[in-house]
Each structure stands twice: as C-alpha cells, then as structure tokens.
Nucleic acid binder design. Structure first.
Lengths: 135, 135
DNA sequence: CAGCATCCTCAACGATACTG
DNA sequence: CAGTATCGTTGAGGATGCTG
C-alpha cells in the first residue's frame, strides 16, 4: 500500500465539529491568562468580604510580594474587576474593592474553590497511586 | 509622636478573620497550578464530547506542540482526570477520555467559559477605557 | 503607607530531531 | 501513530532598595 495504510476511522464525530470551541477558546485562554496567574484569584477571593487596604491585602494574602500585589491590583483595576480608591489623607490610605463585575467573577472562583476542596484528596490519592505504579 | 503616628483603624473586621481562606487557599493554588497552565482546560474541554486519539487532540487543539500535548495528558492521567487507553494494534491507537472526576471539573470549566463569553467584551472595553485615560 | 525601579532566577513552553 | 529526548528562549515572579 502506498497511502492510507491502516487508518482507523475513529469513533468520534467526523465533521470537524470537534472544535466545539469555535472562537470561545480564544476568550477562555484570554481569561485564564488573567486569572490563571499566581495571585489574581487569591486577591479576588480575599476581597469578597469588603474593601481592603494595600497593606491589609499584603498581610492577608500569604507570601505575596509588594511587586506582585501592585501589579495584580493594577491589572484588576484596568479590567474593571476592582476599584482603587485613594483617600487624600496623610498618611495615605488606599482601598481596593470588588466591582459588580469582579463580584460576578467571584462566583465562578467560589465554584472552582468548592471543586478544589471537594476533590483535592481524591486527586492527591490518584497521584500517589500513579507514582507508586511507576516506581 | 514616636510610634503609631496616624494609623487609621480600617473599616474592615479586625479579628484577623480576613483569612476566610484558612487552608483552602492552599488547595486552590494547587488546583490552579494544574489547570491554570496553557493547555489543561483546553484539553479537558475538547474531550467533553467523548474519547479522542492523540493525533485528533493534536489537530483539534489549536497550536499545541507534541511535547506539551504529551506532558499535559500525562499530568491529567496522573491526577485521574483522564484515562489513557492503548489498543494493541498496528498502527498503534491510543484514546484519551475524561474520567468522572475529570467530568466534574469540566462543569467548573464550563462555568468559567460561560463567564468568559459573557463578560469578555465588558472587560475589553474597561481595559480600552483605562488605557485611554492613562495615555 | 503605598507604592515604583532594578536585578536576577527558574521553569514553562516552543522547535526540532529521533524512535518503537 | 504516538510518542521521547534535547536544546534554547521567554517572561512570570521573587528580593531588595528607594520615594512621595
């Protein structure tokens, strides 16, 4: 045989419809690039109970550097997910709060969080078993 | 004055309870490290309609390299989110499918996807406005 | 207090070539 | 077909020091 030696037909629907992500995939990648970083969702989650000041965020979010806190907050403000309110006082006081848009994302984050809490142990066990089998 | 010059009390609840993420944050970071990468959720989403072969995934997921496809699938299999089934034929045929656990994560991913589709335009507009104001 | 500027590291990812 | 092996790059993120 020359071409098409032993190509299995594959049980999956052929019509090229597999890309059920026509252009959505672009959006999801875009959103995930924002919230998939190391700190974004942690900050969003931390702001759920109300506005917080820069230093409060810094001390509540475990292990974040000033640089990353600043950068992440700027991104979030840029995208309209949080507001930055600087009070003209001395010493300066700046508060960050979720916008309604940010709050809507919080809902999704909470769902993710719930999944994490629910299935963490299972995933860890799966991994242990897999690593055990490989050893 | 020497110390505690002008410390505002802050309107937020003091009791250190702000960390409403006691240990959950660890789980979330863990999960996000897995699904927050460039390809994981795309692959999970692509598998939602049923099992797919390596090459099918490679051609359907836009722009993924062989290396990344292999690595991501291995991670997912390790964590029990997908199964890898090698059929002893020639030429070889390997199919990947979501496990029930993977499917439960898919639900969360779909919620994220929905948020992305719904709010993408708003976010983009916010960003344009912010960039405009900075210029 | 709330940042900005700078330097540096490491690992995620892409490209390419080879194999059972 | 379904990978593995190796190399090179890029940028996210940490550490530190300085400022309004």
């Amino acid at each position: 045989m020359t071409s098409a030696a032993g190509v299995h037909p594959s049980p999956v629907r052929e019509a090229g419809v597999c890309s059920g992500w026509p252009k959505e995939s672009g959006f999801i990648r875009e959103v995930l690039d924002r919230i998939g970083d190391k700190w974004t969702i942690l900050i969003i989650g931390t702001l759920r109970d109300g506005p917080l000041r820069y230093t409060e965020l810094h001390s509540v979010v475990p292990g974040i550097s000033q640089r990353m806190l600043t950068l992440t907050l700027q991104q979030l403000a840029r995208d309209g997910l949080v507001t930055r309110t600087a009070h003209p006082e001395v010493p300066p006081r700046v508060e960050y709060a979720l916008t309604p848009l940010g709050r809507s994302l919080l809902d999704v984050v909470m769902a993710l969080s719930a999944w994490a809490v629910t299935h963490y142990e299972t995933v860890a066990a799966n991994r242990r078993a897999a690593d055990e089998a490989t050893r």
